[in-house]
Nucleic acid binder design. Structure first.
Lengths: 199, 199
DNA sequence: TATTTTTGCTAACACTGTTAACTAAAGTAA
DNA sequence: TTACTTTAGTTAACAGTGTTAGCAAAAATA
């Protein structure tokens, strides 16, 4: 009865093919010009086949959004593990966040940029919470060891994430500045934040 | 020879009609669903008429982007004028920036969100520099009166804007949180920034 | 071998931005 | 007023988009 398995494998291989073809197209032409027809063309199947594996185009994009947040969470987790001091963790995680965004522009733009309807992305993508949980725990630890242990961790987390995202997105729409100063900007901002946090 | 003038007036009135119709459509249905056909329908002219007044759809969006940055710059200018102390100015401008974003979501999303190709927006929209100039001058003044007058004003400006934009956009994709805490987040972040700036 | 299920295709619908080609109106000059 | 030229506005089409209904062929089951 390996038939069912073989079929499943085949189905799965098409699914993967769709995602790989889509990703290739994104890499070469950007999100904007990704289309179902192009994907169908690339995998050498007809258009409706894609709809057997994904409900619609958005579902394909959602898949990448998930992947993106997963990768980001993984990266941040590793970086966090490399340090013991929460303040150092926050600094390193900020650095890593920045690097991730620019090393994976395609992902980052999809995760935040493309979707004005990103409002509900948060609900549809549990991976977001994976990432935020990491940040929140670190913030909590930092607060616990600070001179102001009563600080609102959720507020501080929000500030932390916002600073990072803001830095990244402003940098992305302005890209064309010297490369050296870039990193300084993050580090300066992070230093300011941590200083205010730890008091 | 008032004929030419009348014609010009008429032409201008259509142009305005296009923008007004477009704006109305955006208000009711959002940017995503704005289409040339719908605009043509609304102004009761055929489609190509729109192309006599705007090179393409993007040019129409660009018009609103300009408007948005103009409004924002104006608002920030007024707020700045209401205070003498740079630190206070920065705080008030941050507040105003936040309010602008949420009072004019449609504008803000267009100015930053919709355009992944927003990279060249900065070049195409001189109004952006109007706004940034305001911020930069205030930052400069604040630095001049701080304990560390050697600080890099451009870096600090960048941080300031990024924090604001980050706060806004994270808030926008997360909207669904209690309203009261929102303002606190900005003010907390701004306080942290100013503190680090003035030393 | 006959029947059912699955798989994948063609062709279409309803949209999108954009433009070429034409008509009818308005303005100009004789 | 008539003849010509310009311009304003139209219809109809092109090339593309996401999505789906209906059908043919292949594969699995009885």
């Amino acid at each position: 009865m390996g038939i069912a398995e073989r079929k499943l494998r085949h189905k799965e291989s098409i699914r993967i093919g769709i995602l790989e073809a889509a990703w290739q197209l994104v890499i070469t032409d950007g999100w904007q010009s990704l289309s179902i027809r192009k994907i169908a063309d690339a995998i050498e199947y007809s258009i409706p086949v894609i709809y057997n594996h994904f409900e619609n185009k958005e579902a394909i994009l959602l898949e990448f959004t998930k992947e993106g947040f997963e990768k980001l969470a993984e990266t941040l987790g590793e970086v966090k593990a490399a340090y013991a001091d929460p303040a150092q963790q926050l600094a390193a995680m900020g650095d890593a966040y920045w690097d991730f965004a620019f090393d994976n522009k395609e992902y980052y733009q999809l995760m935040f940029g493309l979707g004005i309807p990103a409002c509900d992305t948060v609900k549809k993508v549990p991976e977001v919470q994976e990432m935020t949980a990491l940040m929140i725990s670190t913030i909590k630890e930092a607060i616990a060891g600070s001179k102001n242990p009563e600080a609102d961790y959720f507020l501080k987390f929000h500030t932390y994430w916002s600073i990072l995202h803001g830095l990244v997105s402003i940098q992305m729409i302005e890209s064309g500045k010297p490369d050296v100063t870039k990193k300084m900007i993050v580090q300066d901002a992070m230093a300011g934040f941590t200083k205010a946090l730890v008091d």
